[in-house]
Structures are given as C-alpha cells and as structure tokens.
C-alpha cells in the first residue's frame, strides 16, 4: 500500500511536548535567550507565564533539554501536590537521596548543604498554579537558602491574575510573559515544522489565505493550531483514501479547514 502524503504531516501536529520538535521563531527565540540569561544570573525564582497553549511547557522542556547537558536540572512537569512527596522527589532527583520516610524541610536543607554542587541546581516546575500555598512557601524557603533555583510556569487567565498573588509578587525576581503567535509567527511555525520533517509538498500547499484563516480560527494559539492542523491532515488522509480526486494540491481547502475547526470545537456548528 502506498504511504499517505498527509499522514506524516498529521503526526507532526500531535499535541505532545517534545524539545526536539521545538520550532525556532524569532519572538520565542528571543524569550528563550532571555530565559537562559536569567537562569545564569543569581536569581532565586523565575516566572514564565502566559495563556494556555502559548508554549510555556515547550519552552520549559527545551530549557531542560539544553541546560541538563551542563548542570543539574530537575524537571517536574506533573505537579506533585503532596508536600512530603515533593521534597522526597527533589532529594532523589537532585541529590540522589532515596528515602522511604518523609523528608522535612530542615532535613532537605541539610542535605543540600551536604551535597555541594559548584553550580546551583535548577528545578523547573510546570503548572505551578496547582501547588498549594504552603508548598509554595516551602519552595520560597528553599530558594531563599540558595539551595536551588526555581523556574516556574503559570497559567495567566482572564479571571485570575496569579502573578498578582502576594506570595508570587514577593518572590518572583524575574518574569517572562509568553503570548499567542501572530499571523507571521504562525506561518513560520507551521512551515518550519513541515519543512523540518521534509514535508515539502504539503508545505507548498499552504498559502497566505490558509494561514490567515487558521490564525483567525485559533487566534494564534499554538496548541489550538496543532489540534487544527492534526484534524485537517486527518481529513486530507481520509479524502486521499476515499476521494483522491477532490484534493487540490495548490492550496489547502478552506472548507476542510473549517470542517477541522468544527471537529476541534473552534467553530460551533
């Protein structure tokens, strides 16, 4: 059976965070560089925030991927709600200290003093808005003791500006906000992603009008764009299999883009 032209592009847009799939866009690249610079500074906490789907997790994973080659970096992408577990996991991942018993904050700080790293280890916390205030208080104490550096990501929502919360306001020493992509950025993102995977034919099918429609539907949100593109190339795969004559290779079909948007819930129909 002949491989589908659209199955590969479809799989490119599966919504998983993989640093290898990181696409360099000017604005995001600038953010990433400033994040890397901030990490080198003697800062205790760095905040990375933005609306869901703006690429915070990807940036955090990319940072983890790049920094882990040179220094001790611990990535916690799934929040550990239990305070004892949190300290125990950190002790294990950073200091390779395995303990079945619960670890107190004092014990943890003693451990960090005992294991003296030349460069302060970095802890990357994704979805930090899920952590309890008391745990956030412990994180603050650990960073104040300069035992660890923390880079945390937060969701910025319309209803609640988490940065305004007191315990973040007093501790965050540097904050970086991520935003949705513009039309040009989304165009580069999609094109680069396809070209990186050698999907030249499909990349050539995407014109400015298609990108404008996609930007309009997803409002430049990377996660929504990934979902839309995945649904769109799923449709193309289906049509390629059942009605190949309906496929026009000079541009993406607007109707099918809208159908994909309906499928992903971007259009209510």
């Amino acid at each position: 059976m002949e491989p589908s032209l659209f199955s590969k592009p479809r799989d490119l847009f599966i919504d998983i965070v993989n640093p290898k799939d990181y696409v360099q866009i000017d604005s995001v690249s600038h953010m990433y560089q400033s994040l890397k610079t901030s990490v080198q500074k003697p800062l205790k906490m760095i905040l990375l925030y933005g609306r869901p789907g703006t690429g915070k997790s990807m940036l955090l994973h990319k940072l983890h991927h790049d920094l882990s080659k040179h220094q001790k970096v611990c990535m916690i992408d799934i929040p550990i709600i239990d305070e004892n577990d949190f300290l125990r996991v950190l002790a294990h991942k950073i200091y390779s200290y395995a303990s079945r018993e619960s670890l107190s904050l004092t014990n943890f700080l003693e451990l960090s003093t005992a294991v003296n790293y030349p460069v302060t280890p970095i802890v990357l916390l994704d979805e930090a808005q899920l952590y309890s205030p008391s745990l956030m208080e412990k994180i603050r104490l650990i960073s104040d003791a300069r035992a660890l550096k923390f880079v945390i990501t937060l969701h910025k929502t319309d209803n609640e500006d988490i940065i305004a919360k007191e315990h973040f306001q007093t501790r965050i020493w540097e904050s970086i906000e991520l935003e949705n992509a513009s039309y040009e950025e989304l165009k580069i993102y999609i094109q680069k992603k396809l070209l990186k995977a050698n999907c030249f034919d499909v990349a050539n099918m995407i014109n400015d009008k298609n990108i404008k429609l996609i930007t309009k539907l997803t409002r430049g949100n990377y996660r929504e764009s990934n979902k839309l593109m995945f649904a769109l190339f799923s449709l193309y795969t289906w049509y390629e299999e059942h009605y190949p004559s309906k496929i026009k290779y000079n541009a993406l079909n607007t109707k099918w883009i809208e159908m994909a948007a309906i499928h992903t819930g971007l259009i209510r129909a």
Partner: peptide, 18 residues
C-alpha cells in the same frame, strides 16, 4: 476516527448559519 460525512453536514449547517 473522523466521521467525515457528519462533519460535512455540520459544515453545511454552519455555512448556512453564517
């Protein structure tokens, strides 16, 4: 798995509404 025929109907409905 996509139900394309159903999706096409939904699209038609959306288009008419639009």
């Amino acid at each position: 798995m996509l139900d394309v025929s159903k999706l096409e109907k939904r699209w038609l409905k959306y288009k008419i509404k639009k």
